[in-house]
Structures are given as structure tokens and as C-alpha cells.
Nucleic acid binder design. Structure first.
Lengths: 342, 342
DNA sequence: GTTAGCACTCAATTGATTCGAGTGCTAATT
DNA sequence: AATTAGCACTCGAATCAATTGAGTGCTAAC
């Protein structure tokens, strides 16, 4: 494979380019302490690395920049994790120390802190709700026509929506319906709610309420809320400080993507746990083809998995980004453990 | 003041520039049907209009563009409201026809539709809550350590936050506290909640609960949530399609402003009702100094007022923007009337 | 009062020139 | 055989002059 000297040259070039965003020339490499060869030698090595596809030129007489393959190799074989500064470690740990926050707040707060620390855009996807169970259902009438249904899950997520009370629905029927629901549905996994209503609740409603049709209609209106928002984005404009983002059209389409949960979520839900790095065109979303996305999973219980991600230019500070995500996702998992499995 | 011919010339220039974003020259003006003078005559008029401050040149031999004063005169004296297309009217009316939506959803939906129709950024500020009263308070324990407090207002707004249950708080105390709160606080305007607790509730708590300190702590944790989010922004990236937005730094700072409720809200809360137009440097926020902001108020009850606004370049299609806002705010006010004052 | 005519201005484009950072190759050096 | 010095070469970026064309302002004629 690569000789030690080639490894060194590739590492120096990637490191330098990550910092400077400028093509790296042989003279500049030769000046570095770690390097003890002449520019000519380095030029030869660079030519070889370019032949192998790890480096590119922006034009025929320019210095070299890493190719996507170069970054990939760097990430897989060269990079060593960065030791985080005390400040960084503290910031992250503090974001968990504040007690008694809801999951939503923790995620929002985390996204904010990570985007400050990294200066990249942070995306947090909340845990999926396969296992989430309904804790309690409340229905609060506002006036004669409308009421609010509130669903509370065992993980502390609260969902609410208002709905119209069917005309002429008997007041006692409303009460009975709610009672039946609370009794029967508490502890039922959210995703089975509809099935459960069909099998277990329908009968009861028929039996105990005077106008089954109306009650059933009420129920359906109240419970079938759409998928809750689960994506938290912070530091969206951070990427605008990167010199590679100048094309307003591309900025626009990238921003539009980031606002759209439907487009982002599938990308963040990676199949397996742990850390993933998507460099340039490895990203499925073409608007991110000159970006790098690093995702890390965290877990609540065994199989409820959420994702956090950093989005930046391909010229991303990989070592730092990886270290920070590592630290965060570990802390997050630990914190959730103590919160919910006591 | 201005002669009819000067009015005509000014109108043609503003209209043309709004459409083309290019400085308008005398020859082009002369070509228009509505105009029956030679370029030379128009040049004379333009020179006068420039002396009066209504027009500007981008350089000494360029065509003219409207100055801020020019736009101001145009909106105050020249512009006539645009007749909206059927499609536009329908879109707006439809956004209200869907029944049984919460205020939050209506606003979000409105912001979306208006940004689609105008291609400008839409900002909606929900009604202020001076008069909003607490309808019901619910506290749902999640486990031994934490619980969720849910506040429901008479306008259907739902707020929730989780908090830690003070250690060793007696279970019956928790229940009693909640009962006392619900009994006493229902119907109290939100902004008086804290005062009310001090005067009316503190005593009761002391009397009926065994550990006053703990109960009071619980109460404070649960109730003092920050100001609810009230700002809905849609079509943020629309302004990026305008040719005047090319400077990435300015884009960044404008975007940052738009994400910050604290910065935007004061601007949208104008003192008096109705429509306001802020052109260029008339905007208090300096990042908007090359933008125009048009705000319109809507009302729920008599003095609960919310605001909707469109943000675009100073070269905004004023006639259309004003007509659309007018239509929307009228519909919104009417809709709220029927919803809440039946 | 209006307009034709003309000199003038200036941004934008084009092409030529220079500069310099960088390369690739060859021949000399170790 | 590996390394390096030396040198010709490449190409983007910057600078400058020339050209073009859309537009103006002014004056004199209509």
C-alpha cells in the first residue's frame, strides 16, 4: 500500500488544507518540522499519490488538494482522535448536568452547544418511538365546540392537538369515552394504538356510550396526530462562514433541505449504530455532495436509537468532529440510561 | 408638488425596476405605451426627480433606480392596490376553511401559503397573551423523580414542561397541591399567575400540605416556563432568489436575525393597528437596511393583536404584497372572531 | 414647451502583459 | 538507487489599455 513517507505527505496535505482551504504546494510541505525531504522529493510523492487518486490539482500548476478518496483514506487509516480541550469537555458535560429537562430540551440544547463548539451545523434526530408507550390521555374541553387532546408518553414526550367536538355528543358520553380510553390504552405502545382501539376499545364504546358513532368519530379525531417533530437543527448558518459556500443557489437548496424533516431524517437513520462518515458524493442527498456528514447514534433502552450529526464542508476538521460526537453520544446514552431506567 | 408627468415617470420607473431589477433608462421609458414623450423630455424629468431625491443613479451615466424616498412616495401616493388573481384569493381563503385547527397550526399554515404566493419571507407573530387565561393545569407523574406539568389556556394554547419532583414530597401533598392550583388558578390571566400564587395560593398550601417548602418548590418549578414560542417564519430562503442578495456575510446575518425571536418580535409589534411599510433604512434592524418589511395586524378579541409580515428587497412588489396582507389579515380576524367569540 | 443632436461618462468586456506559486522532468549528487 | 538541484513550463490572478454601448446632460432647433 502506501509507504510511510506517502502517509506522512498525505496527512500533512489534508491537515494543512483543512486549516487553510488553500491548495498545498511542495515548498510549504517541506517547511514543516515533521518533514525532512526536499520539495522535489515531495513533488514526486505527490505525483504518485495523485496517480493513486488520493490527491487532486485545481489546475495544472497548482498545489494539491485531497480528493474524496484522500479524505476517506485519511479518515480510515491516518487520522488520530483529537484530545478535546477542557473547555469543550466541560461544555458538553454541562449540557447534561442540568437536571429535570425533557428529552426535547436536551436535544435542542445539545444541538446548540455542538454547533457552537464545532462551528458546523448540528442535526439531532430524536429517538424513534417504536417502544414508546402511552402513559396518559387527557381531554380538556375548551368550549362547546372544541377540545384539546393531550397524549403523554412514558418517555415524557407530550403531544397535543385540538379537535372539534361532534355536535350533539352527549356530555356523559365524552366523559365515558375518555375514561375508557385512559383505562384501556395506558401502557399501549404508540404504534399499536390504532390496532388496539379496533380490537379492545370499539366494543366497550358500543356498550357504554349512547351514540357510538359520535364517540368513535371523536376518538379518531383526537388521537391520530401526525408524526411528531423530531429533528433539531442548530447553527444552520455556520456553514456560510466556510469559504467553499459562495454560490447562493446552492446555499438555498442546502438550506431548504435542512428545513425539511422528511428529506433529512432518512439520511440520519443509519442502519447500524456507532459513527458514520459520509464524504462528498458518498452522501445520498446531492445537495450535500460537497459536504461531509458525520453521524453518531445514541440509545435509550436497547433498541431505541437516535442520531446526532455534524454537517460541514468536505474539508472538515474530522478529528475534532469525531471526538466531539463520540463524547456527546456516550454521555447522552449514559444520561438517558439513568433518567429512564432507574 | 409633482406634476402629472413626473408622477407618471416615477411610477413607470418604480414599476419597471421592481420587475427587472435593472436601472431604467430614458429610451426604455419612452417605449412604453403609457408614455408619449421623447427620451429627451423624460431625461429632463428624471433629472428633476433626481434633484428632488426620488431617484438615484448607480453611476454617472447609468439609468435611474428609485431611492428609498422614491419608494416611499410610490407607496404613499402612486401605487394602487393590485387586484388579486382568483388563485391567490382561493389559496388564502382555503387556508382558513379547514376547520378545527389550533391557532398554532393556522399561523404556521398561513406563513407557508403567503410565502408561496409572494415568494417573500413571511413572518407571523402570534397574538400576545395579556388576556389569556389559564384554563386548566394538569400534572402527570412520569416516575418517582419527574413529572410533567401541562398548562392549557382558554385560547387553546398548550404548554408543557417536565420537572423533578422534590425528593420525599408526600404523595398526597402533590395531589393536594394540584387540586388547590386547579381550583384557584383557573381563569387567572397568565401574566398575573405569579402574583396570584403569592397572594392566594401560598396560604392555602401552608394550611393544607404537610411540607409547605417542598410543595412550593414544586409549584415554582412547574409553572415558570419561559415565554412560549410565538413566531412562525416561512420561506426564509425565498429572499435568496432575489438578485440583490449575493453577499454571503449579509445573508448569514439576516438569517441569524430571522431565527431569533427576541430580535424579530419587537419589530413586528408595532404600536398601532393596520398596515405598516418599512423601506430600507426605515427598518430598525440594520441587517434589514436593504429590505422592505410590510407588517399587518390582526386581532382576536379587541386588544389581543398579532402581526403578520412580509420581508423582501426594497424592490418589493408593493401592490401585490399589500393586497395579500390586507386580504389575509381581514380573513384572519374574521375567522378568530367566529372561533372564539361564539 | 418639446425634441433632435451630439459630446461626454462610465461600467462592462476583451485582450495583452506580467507575476509568481507551483509543477514535471532531467541530470547531478549522495 | 534514492534524493535533490536546477530549470523550463503552466496557469490563475492581477494589472492595464482599448473598445463597446447604454445612458446622460446640454444646447440649439422646432
Amino acid at each position: 500500500m502506501l509507504t510511510n513517507r506517502q502517509l506522512l505527505v498525505l496527512k500533512v496535505i489534508v491537515d494543512d488544507f483543512i486549516e487553510s482551504a488553500q491548495p498545498v504546494g511542495s515548498r510549504n510541505i517541506a517547511k514543516k518540522e515533521q518533514v525532512s525531504f526536499s520539495p522535489a522529493t515531495i513533488r514526486n510523492e505527490m505525483a504518485d499519490l495523485e496517480d493513486m487518486g488520493f490527491l487532486e490539482k485545481t489546475h495544472s500548476s497548482s498545489g494539491r488538494i485531497p480528493s474524496e478518496k484522500g479524505y476517506r483514506y485519511y479518515v480510515d487509516h491516518i487520522m488520530s482522535p483529537l484530545k478535546l480541550s477542557n473547555h469543550e469537555v466541560n461544555q458538553i458535560q454541562q449540557s447534561f448536568s442540568e437536571r429535570m429537562m425533557e428529552l426535547e430540551r436536551v436535544m435542542q440544547n445539545s444541538a446548540h452547544i455542538l454547533s457552537e463548539l464545532t462551528r458546523y451545523t448540528t442535526l439531532v434526530l430524536g429517538p424513534q418511538v417504536y417502544e414508546t408507550k402511552l402513559k396518559q390521555l387527557q381531554i380538556v374541553p375548551l368550549n362547546n365546540q372544541s377540545a384539546i387532546a393531550i397524549l403523554i408518553t412514558d418517555k415524557g414526550h407530550v403531544e397535543h392537538r385540538s379537535f372539534a367536538i361532534p355536535k350533539d355528543l352527549d356530555h356523559s358520553d365524552l366523559e365515558k369515552t375518555v375514561n375508557i380510553l385512559n383505562e384501556k390504552l395506558s401502557g399501549v405502545p404508540i404504534i399499536y394504538l390504532d390496532r388496539f382501539i379496533d380490537t379492545e376499545v370499539k366494543g366497550l364504546l358500543k356498550k357504554y356510550t349512547s351514540d357510538f358513532q359520535k364517540s368513535y368519530q371523536l376518538l379518531n379525531q383526537a388521537l391520530f396526530t401526525e408524526q411528531p417533530t423530531n429533528l433539531y437543527v442548530s447553527g444552520k448558518t455556520n456553514i456560510l462562514t466556510q469559504p467553499e459556500f459562495t454560490d447562493v443557489d446552492k446555499i438555498r437548496s442546502l438550506f431548504d433541505i435542512m428545513e425539511s424533516e422528511e428529506q433529512i431524517a432518512p439520511v440520519l437513520k443509519s442502519e447500524d449504530e456507532g459513527l458514520h462518515i459520509y464524504i462528498g458524493r458518498e452522501n445520498k442527498i446531492k445537495e450535500m455532495n460537497n459536504c461531509t456528514l458525520i453521524t453518531a447514534t445514541y440509545s435509550l433502552d436497547d433498541d431505541q436509537v437516535g442520531t446526532i450529526a455534524l454537517l460541514g464542508p468536505t474539508r472538515m476538521d474530522y478529528a475534532k468532529a469525531v471526538s466531539i460526537l463520540d463524547l456527546w453520544s456516550g454521555q447522552m446514552t449514559k444520561t438517558l440510561q439513568t433518567w429512564f431506567n432507574d
